[in-house]
Design a protein around this nucleic acid. Structure first.
Lengths: 252, 252
DNA sequence: ACGATACCGTGAACAGCGTTCACCGTCAAT
DNA sequence: ATTGACGGTGAACGCTGTTCACGGTATCGT
């Protein structure tokens, strides 16, 4: 199995089983696991854009090129980081709860973990999650949906709807960076409100009226309300005929 | 907010009114407008990651540094590109339609435009859409919501819910790939299905059962179903008491 | 126990990136 | 006709991801 390093045909399995040989690798100073852990630590401390092969090498005390013995590319490293973060999501659910509650709990757990690792959501959107823990999470989402009676296709749709929203929400609302100012900075927010007030009221009547109430730092509320609305929509769609999605006239 | 980088100041207005002096700039060979247009063309032809100051300069027939006479940084260029794309969204709505339909139409228009400019959605998630056309779009979304009776805060929540989902969807689904190849490719999709079948069935029972039905290339269907569910959820929430979002127990 | 061998970090290099800046030509205004 | 600002040039700086020949080291077969 250890021989699968170079021409491994690069099926998704490579992401999967390569790390299984932890027995021998434990004694070595530099392992793939250590590289990924240090990458996570680096991201936690300095943000996701500080994840640089050189910076990571320096942090571990190794020349940049050495990392390539354990990781095929920076992209793969990012995949591994993503999966490492997703591993923190607790996928155990109380199956006695209604499916709507189970999904809500899981979505909130996912968001909390992403919140703890700012910037990682960005990676999640860029790469796609086929690592073992990503799949465990998918399984955890799909099971309640399936048990609730969603047919295969609809369960898939609902799954993507929830996950896309959760990740997308986190990507867009958590753009922070360490040095740059975020909206919850009071001064910046005040400038933003002033900006809205300065807009031409004839062109953006609703916007200037609602502006200060819209661009506020109420991310928790936004996410909770979003997930609730979304799941309510799914709940309603569940009891409708399968032709439910056929509002073709909409997309003109 | 991410629009201003280091030298503070730089209120959002800069994005707005800088380009207002088009009178004199028209006769010059290289204008900000031309730079942005060429950037859009470059992205359309070679993808968003091909947008490089050097490549853009070469395409225009100019040394890279020359671009900085018209654009403060690559970040600002990206902001301008985003706003240029958003300008293509038709914001006129038939106010006779129910608000749900208006929002659906608008969301679909937004998605269609983003679909026409692959990769731009990525920029949208990274930068803050505060350009004039971004604001027009926000206005177009907020008006029907406001008219439908959503209070300020709830209109804002609904607006972000819809926009976050639409953009997030486009970001994540426009580049689903396995080892760099898109899922559209039938062979790759077959490999993906095979991958799902190869998964340990005891760990991912639902996943292997639904796998082939979940990861399929039905993005149009996914988006339509998602938007419908989402708006139905909003529609339902509209008639509920404001304490509606207080399922605090959910986030454990 | 010894030599072969596979492993793995080193150091240097390459190509490309965004960005800056002194320089100088061209054009508009005085 | 002189001045002066504007704007493109070319070269450089410091950064990035990635590759590769070179050794040293630890393991394995005999």
């Amino acid at each position: 199995m250890g021989t699968s390093s170079k021409h491994g045909a690069a099926t998704p399995r490579s992401l999967w089983f390569d790390a299984a040989e932890t027995d021998e690798e434990l004694r070595r100073t530099l392992t793939r696991e250590r590289v990924v852990n240090q990458a996570l630590a680096l991201i936690a401390q300095e943000g996701v854009e500080a994840l640089t092969m050189r910076a990571l090498g320096a942090r571990i005390g190794v020349v940049p090129g050495a990392l390539y013995r354990h990781v095929r590319s920076k992209e793969q490293l990012q995949d591994l980081v993503v999966d490492g973060v997703l591993a923190e999501v607790d996928c155990d659910l109380d199956q006695a709860l209604p499916w709507t509650e189970q999904i809500k709990v899981l979505a909130h757990r996912l968001r909390d973990v992403l919140e703890d690792h700012p910037g990682v959501a960005t990676l999640l959107k860029t790469r796609d999650p086929l690592g073992p823990h990503s799949l465990s999470l998918a399984e955890a989402f799909l099971l309640p949906l399936h048990d609730a009676g969603f047919p295969h296709r609809e369960a898939g749709l609902a799954f993507f709807l929830i996950v896309d929203y959760t990740i997308g929400f986190e990507v867009s609302s958590s753009r922070i960076s360490v040095n740059e100012q975020r909206v919850q900075d009071a001064a910046t927010r005040e400038r933003l409100h002033e900006f809205f007030r300065s807009l031409p009221g004839d062109r953006f009547p609703t916007l200037v009226a609602l502006g200060e109430h819209v661009w506020v730092d109420n991310r928790d509320e936004r996410f909770t309300a979003g997930i609730n609305a979304l799941i309510d929509g799914l709940h309603g769609a569940q009891r409708l005929p399968p032709e439910y999605t056929d509002h073709e006239a909409v997309s003109e």
